[in-house]
Design a protein around this nucleic acid. Structure first.
Lengths: 150, 150
DNA sequence: ATTGAATAGATGTCTATACAAATAATGTTA
DNA sequence: TAACATTATTTGTATAGACATCTATTCAAT
């Protein structure tokens, strides 16, 4: 494997920019597939895991649905429905916000925190394992991605 | 914007590897969103566009569904249904393979080729525009992504 | 030739993404 | 305060991703 040309059997790309786009989409799929199989036994999706992490980051302060949406990895996703899924599994609580009844306060439950704790080490080790780079290469990659988005 | 910490309002990451995973997922979403809006007026999804490109790369030689699947950016996708969608728009033809009746020969149509031709320049320019890197940085990014996947 | 394994593809189900539209509450302004 | 715009969230609908399962061939072996 290795090079993207071999992986998807494409001879050549227009330029390094177009190649980078394809390479990024392909690499994301590679990583998400790994995450999926990690979360599957816990009946959680990568996106639901991400929402739980956002909520834990609040340290007990309630968060609105739109604030979750803003902080999700995929801005076009649907926080409202993800929160509903998590609520049905008792991983989050949802309460009407008293100061503004349009808003909904979302909080992670004890059960949610426990699940996160249980998964965290596995996720971190899995990420490390699937990112076959040295530490300085990983830092360089982060810098390039940050710059890419402008 | 710029740094991933600001973009998703996360204070810090466990290590550069875990940060790279999050950064890759976020960057992919940024790019796919751009692609979506580019393809939308033509009633095409990024994935359907990708299948058309794979078929054009065959230069008239029929391809099987599983061969398309192998070359898709997302290996877990469903080539069978994507081909069906494209067929309904007359962008591809599907024929029973005479030598092995389990297989299906898929071919891009004239209409499909014309649509690709029409979109190609736009896509390449859009990719260039959304990848805010120099050429040598883009090459470096490609090398890092290839290495990352091992 | 018959049985059983392997392969190609289609289909079913659930979750997520993309985006439009509906609903409800709040803010603003004439 | 009535009318209108804005904002927060939900809901509807389409496509795609992630599997599992089913069907139809084909292959392999007895």
């Amino acid at each position: 494997m290795g090079k993207i040309e071999d992986a998807i059997q494409q001879r050549e790309f227009k330029d390094p920019f177009n190649k980078a786009v394809v390479n990024l989409l392909f690499t994301q799929s590679y990583l998400v597939t790994a995450q999926h199989s990690l979360f599957k036994p816990h009946d959680l999706s990568p996106e639901q895991y991400n929402v739980l992490r956002i909520l834990r980051g609040q340290n007990g302060v309630p968060t609105t649905v739109s604030s979750i949406q803003d902080r999700m990895l995929n801005k076009m996703s649907n926080a409202s429905r993800l929160v509903e899924k998590l609520k049905m599994k008792n991983l989050v609580k949802r309460e009407e916000c008293p100061s503004d009844r349009r808003q909904v306060d979302v909080l992670i439950t004890e059960k949610g925190l426990e699940l996160l704790k249980q998964l965290e080490v596995q996720v971190e080790e899995s990420n490390k394992q699937f990112v076959n780079l040295t530490e300085s290469e990983a830092i360089l990659l982060n810098d390039l991605l940050d710059k890419l988005r402008g």
